[in-house]
């Protein structure tokens, strides 16, 4: 088949994928594959790692080095890969339940060390695969199957947490803004250090249905109408109740695998 991105996909034996009709993870995967295809990288230099969950099915469909690990342990596995093969570009793709609930500690410590990973966090606000239980990112008052009267817990602001933990590149986009998301992923892959991209995604089957948000199209229209770019925010009140998209934080810091390499050289007396 004469398709530009076909060499990065397991089109022959894996597709069509198992995700629900209208699921945002497919759009995020689409943007990621295109970002990989447009960056001048050999597919043997890329490793995609994931944990458990809907979004962690993604590496199964991508034709490069992929690794589907334990629940919440995508980042520890990626750390091992990066330290063993520092020349590889390691991409972690995981969901909010995977990366922030069971893998929350790994997430903040990888950010603290500033290891050169690209983390694509697909946030669909619930645990989709197990049936719509509320997750650490479910907004307060929104319903899940285990929160029929609305979640009473406060939710995480992922981007603020990543920034405070020490990530050098923090950005947010939605599945409506796929060209924007593709650009952000390309930027994050070039960045040396821990780069986090939060992708606000739709789960029309569970979260959208339980919260009366309508189908996938209605949810995408909601994201279109309720998002604001970071340059448009002049005062804090502009961002109230809105999804702020764009590059939220960028800085420079020494990268962990390079610092570690120096220690190895000293110990081996090179």
């Amino acid at each position: 088949m004469n398709i530009e991105i076909a060499e990065y996909l397991r089109l022959d034996d894996r597709f069509p994928h198992i995700l629900c009709p209208g699921c945002g993870i497919g759009s995020a995967m689409n943007a990621m594959v295109r970002a990989i295809s447009e960056s001048s990288m050999n597919k043997n230099e890329i490793c995609v790692v994931s944990g458990i969950g809907c979004s962690s099915r993604v590496p199964g469909y991508i034709d490069c080095d992929t690794f589907h690990t334990l629940h919440g342990r995508a980042i520890p596995s990626a750390t091992g890969i990066k330290l063993a093969r520092p020349e590889m570009e390691v991409i972690v793709i995981a969901g909010d339940g995977d990366l922030l609930a069971i893998g929350g500690n790994h997430f903040i410590h990888a950010a603290r060390r500033n290891l050169d990973l690209t983390v694509i966090l697909i946030n669909n606000f619930n645990y989709g695969m197990t049936g719509g239980q509320f997750s650490p990112t479910t907004p307060q008052g929104k319903r899940g199957t285990t929160a029929p009267y609305g979640s009473v817990e406060r939710d995480f602001n992922v981007c603020e947490m990543a920034k405070v933990a020490g990530a050098v590149f923090v950005a947010r986009s939605t599945t409506y803004h796929t060209p924007h998301l593709k650009g952000l992923i390309k930027q994050a892959m070039k960045k040396k250090g821990f780069a986090v991209i939060e992708v606000v995604s739709q789960c029309p089957t569970l979260y959208g249905r339980l919260n009366r948000m309508g189908d996938a199209i209605k949810m995408l229209e909601y994201y279109r109408d309720n998002s604001i770019t970071v340059t448009q925010v002049k005062e804090p009140k502009d961002a109230e109740g809105k999804i702020v998209i764009g590059v939220l934080w960028e800085t420079e810091a020494p990268e962990y695998s390079e610092v570690y390499k120096k220690v190895i050289d000293i110990a081996q007396k090179k």
Binding site: P21, G26, S27, N30, Y176, T178, P179, K182
Partner: peptide, 10 residues
Amino acid sequence: LCELRCPDFA
């Protein structure tokens, strides 16, 4: 835009 947004690579 359809190509970019399509979740199913269809």
